[in-house]
Each structure stands twice: as structure tokens, then as C-alpha cells.
């Protein structure tokens, strides 16, 4: 495993990029730091969606796992006073991964629009419960207390910022490794021709199930990070269908080209939203929606393909 990672260019660039970002974060104004933090956290969920998308599946219900992750952190905090970042992350990923494991048995048989609709239904079931049940915070949700690391509660958010970057870098490298293995190569194979994969002797359902669990756990981690960064969870900004829509939006905007793309996409989305909101408080959705359409029409492989093109041109001109 280490051999693959050591020889991989993407991994090296990812680690380097995240390292630089972590250092640079210290010198950034708080609002930039916050936006980066939110964008990175969201990028984790997008990374999972990208793995699914490579098999041709788009889930319109990953807010389910995003929400489970966020609420796992909030509920553990409220009832047991859990504030340690590792415990929180493990809880969130465990809960999301477990639900993904269970629902995966059903979802792995579905494709295209049916897959999207059934995942939407599952996520809306959770939304329906969270909005109405007092014990789960109802429409107001909960606040989340400050995050600690092994008993130490840092004063600034910079520590959390670094923690998120470490989590993102780790996840990106692990997913990169996964995509390099036979299982990862199977991703494209399944999108191309399921029948052939079955006749080669591999269970398509199993492969998709595995990807689904990965994406669920990543979305859980993403939700947990978001809850910690915001200090607050509530159903409308964590579990409603619009959240799933946003995640899919970022996935398509980022493009399936690289494991770094989801994080770039997440950050771009966060800044796009902030600027659009500053520029036109009543028309930020218009700008976001317009961007989405423009990407689908003119940049079907996402922002990453644009970066790649620039890269190649630079390489050839110098």
C-alpha cells in the first residue's frame, strides 16, 4: 500500500498542497479561514459522491449521511458531553457507515434515476423525523460545544482548521489508493458495462455496496466536521434535500478527474456563495444556479478539467 502511495504524484501534490494551506491558514483573516474550513469539510462528502459518480451513480440523498454525522456529534455532545475530535469523528463515521451498510443492501440494486429517488426518499425520512421530534431538536436543532483534542480545548479555531485539513488529506490519499487498486479500476468498468463485470466473475452489487459505504462514511465525517466548524446543527441546513442538491452540485462542478477536485470544488462553492450573498443578498441562488448550468453546459468534466487544461498549456509553452 505504502509503495503505491509513495510513487503516486497526486498523493505527493495533495499532501504538499494541504501542508501549505495549513501553514497559510494561520495568517488568514477569520472569514477566509472559516470559508476554507466549510469548503474543505463539505469536500469530504463530495469526495465520497465522486467515488459513486465514477460508477455512474448520483445520489440525491447524501444529506442523510451528512446529517447523521452532524447529529451524531451534536447528540453525543448533548447527552454525554463528548467533545474530543477523534471520538466525535469515529462516532459520526461509524453511524453513517453503519446506516450506509444497511441501506446499501437495498440501494445496490438500483440505478440512475431510481437510485437517486430512493436515496432522496431515505434522506427525507430522516428529515421528516428531525423536523418534528422535540427530543431531536426539532426545526431549531442543537448547538455544539467547542471541540477538544485529547483533553485540550484550543482557544482559536485554527486548531480545528488544521484538524480538518489533516482529515481531508488523509481521506484524499486513501481514496486515491483505493482508485489505484483493482477495485477502484472496477469503478469505471461498472459504469461502462455491468454485464461484463458479472461475467468476469465479480459481483457488481458488492462493488457498488462497498463504494456506497465509503461515500456514506465520508459524508458522515463531512457532517461532523461541519457541525464542529459551525458549532450548530439543524435539519434545514444539514438534512433537507437542498443540502443533497448542493453536494451533488459541488461534485459536478468539481468534476471526477482527481481526488483533490472535491476540495477545490467545496472551497470554490463556499466563496461563490459568500460573494454572491454579499453582492446580491436576494439573488445569490441565481448566481449559484447559473454557475451550475454553465458548468453542465460548457465544462462537463468540471473545474478540474479546466485546471488540467491550463496545466497542460503551461507545460507545453514553457
Amino acid at each position: 500500500m505504502l509503495q503505491i502511495l509513495r510513487s503516486d504524484k497526486t498523493v505527493r501534490w495533495t499532501l504538499f498542497g494541504f501542508f501549505v494551506l495549513a501553514i497559510a491558514g494561520n495568517f488568514m483573516p477569520t472569514w477566509v479561514q472559516n470559508n476554507l474550513m466549510f469548503g474543505m469539510a463539505r469536500g469530504l462528502a463530495v469526495l465520497g459522491l465522486m467515488v459513486l459518480w465514477r460508477t455512474g451513480l448520483i445520489s440525491f440523498g447524501h444529506a442523510l449521511y451528512f446529517g447523521i454525522g452532524a447529529y451524531a456529534v451534536a447528540l453525543a455532545d448533548k447527552h454525554f458531553g463528548v467533545s474530543d475530535i477523534f471520538v466525535r469523528l469515529i462516532l459520526a463515521m461509524g453511524a453513517a457507515g453503519f446506516v450506509g451498510l444497511c441501506l446499501g443492501f437495498i440501494l445496490r440494486k438500483y440505478r440512475s434515476i431510481f437510485f437517486a429517488m430512493l436515496s432522496l426518499a431515505f434522506s427525507m425520512v430522516l428529515y421528516g423525523v428531525l423536523v418534528k421530534v422535540e427530543a431531536l431538536g426539532s426545526t431549531d436543532g442543537f448547538s455544539v460545544s467547542a471541540t477538544s483534542i485529547l483533553g485540550w480545548t484550543p482557544e482559536s479555531k485554527y486548531t480545528l482548521f488544521c484538524a480538518i485539513i489533516v482529515a481531508c488529506a488523509t481521506s484524499a490519499c486513501m481514496v486515491q489508493y483505493y482508485l489505484k487498486t483493482g477495485l477502484g479500476a472496477l469503478t469505471t468498468a461498472i459504469r461502462d458495462n455491468e454485464l461484463r463485470v458479472e461475467y468476469l466473475g465479480y459481483s457488481v452489487a458488492k462493488a457498488i455496496h462497498f463504494k456506497y459505504i465509503i461515500s456514506a462514511a465520508l459524508a458522515g465525517a463531512s457532517g461532523a466536521m461541519m457541525a464542529m466548524a459551525l458549532g450548530q446543527v439543524d435539519p434545514d441546513s444539514m438534512v433537507n434535500w437542498t443540502v443533497s442538491g448542493e453536494l451533488v452540485f459541488i461534485t459536478v462542478m468539481a468534476g471526477p478527474g482527481s481526488v483533490i477536485a472535491p476540495f477545490i470544488g467545496g472551497v470554490v462553492f463556499e466563496f461563490l456563495r459568500t460573494y454572491a450573498f454579499e453582492l446580491a443578498p436576494h439573488a445569490w441562488q441565481l448566481i449559484v444556479g447559473g454557475t451550475l448550468l454553465a458548468i453542465i453546459f460548457f465544462l462537463p468534466m468540471g473545474l478540474w478539467s479546466l485546471l488540467e487544461r491550463i496545466w497542460v498549456r503551461k507545460g507545453s509553452s514553457s
Binding site: 442538491g245 441562488q285 441565481l286 448550468l293 453542465i296
Partner: peptide, 12 residues
């Protein structure tokens, strides 16, 4: 997804 984009635009 494209119609989701249209939805966002029309909402605003």
C-alpha cells in the same frame, strides 16, 4: 441536476 440549477435561478 440542471433543472435544480434552473430551480435555484427561478426561486431568486
Amino acid at each position: 441536476l440542471a433543472t435544480f440549477g434552473i430551480f435555484l435561478i427561478l426561486e431568486d
